[in-house]
Design a protein around this nucleic acid. Structure first.
Length: 146
DNA sequence: GGTGAGCGA
């Protein structure tokens, strides 16, 4: 359905190119993306952020087991204090269930706090994985005072 | 402490 619109757009663009130059034009796949948000990795592991400080693995599993079979649930606890860091991971038996759970629970409130769910990235071996929404380096801010 | 990335085979 949406493809027709894209094809029409492509035809218009090619028509414009006709009177100019007949080089090999190609359409970038970036413009063909549907209304899909970022983090569309094919994985059944979910990263759960924005959790309340009082949530535990049992509560999280109980909240997500209604969408499908939960294979594994893990909460990140602070090493030293023993308290939860406010985020965790949920592994579903099927990717479809994970996608449904993410779509259903992302942005919803749990224990009074809105949840932030994304597909989990496996931790890099030999070092902590660093990922951010903006992916901006803090070192880019060089203080040039004086 | 709130914009996030874990553990133990």
């Amino acid at each position: 359905m949406m493809r027709n619109g894209i094809e029409l757009l492509v035809r218009r663009v090619s028509a414009i190119h006709q009177h100019s130059i007949s080089s090999s034009f190609q359409v970038l796949p970036q413009f063909c993306t549907s209304s899909s948000s970022s983090s569309a990795s094919p994985s059944s592991k979910l990263f759960i952020g924005g959790l309340s400080w009082s949530v535990d693995e049992q509560s999280l599993k109980d909240a997500f087991s209604s969408f499908g079979e939960v294979a594994e649930v893990r909460i990140a606890y602070d090493k030293g204090s023993g308290r939860s860091r406010g985020f965790g991971f949920v592994d579903f038996a099927e990717e479809d269930d994970a996608l449904s759970a993410k779509d259903a629970m992302d942005g919803k409130g749990l224990l009074g706090r809105p949840l932030r769910i994304s597909f989990a990235l496996e931790r890099v071996r030999g070092g902590p994985v660093v990922v951010s929404r903006i992916g901006k380096s803090k070192r880019d801010r060089e203080r040039v005072f004086k």
